[in-house]
Amino acid sequence: MAYSEKVIDHYNNPRNVGTLNKDSKFVGTGLVGAPECGDVMRLQIEVGEDNVITDAKFKTFGCGSAIASSSLATEWLKGKTIDEALSIDNMDIVEELALPPVKIHCSVLAEDAIKSAINDYRVKNGLEAIVLEKSHH
């Protein structure tokens, strides 16, 4: 299968690979997917004043499209407020990376990872977790 140039770029030069201190109360961690399904994403955000995301890091086990989706997500998250981050839709990722239909689940997983990281941060800081609509995989 041929990959789009943007997927290849993110794959070869992944942005924001790494690990934030998951025990910090400013850090939210989302771990989604399953090894048996062939993809696992871990996405972390660090939240500063005014609910602005100051840093984002990821590590992903998966195919090129999964790696590119999470790399792109971290790029988009930096500088956004939590509310803005919540509005990131998986179809935005599909469009930006020109993912074929068979790879749409990679973008869904990235959206799940963002929401799961935000919820982790919220719960740590005494806020209620946002009820997520069950995404369709």
Partner: peptide, 8 residues
Amino acid sequence: RELSPLWE
């Protein structure tokens, strides 16, 4: 493996 959360 550098990129893999499972490896970490």
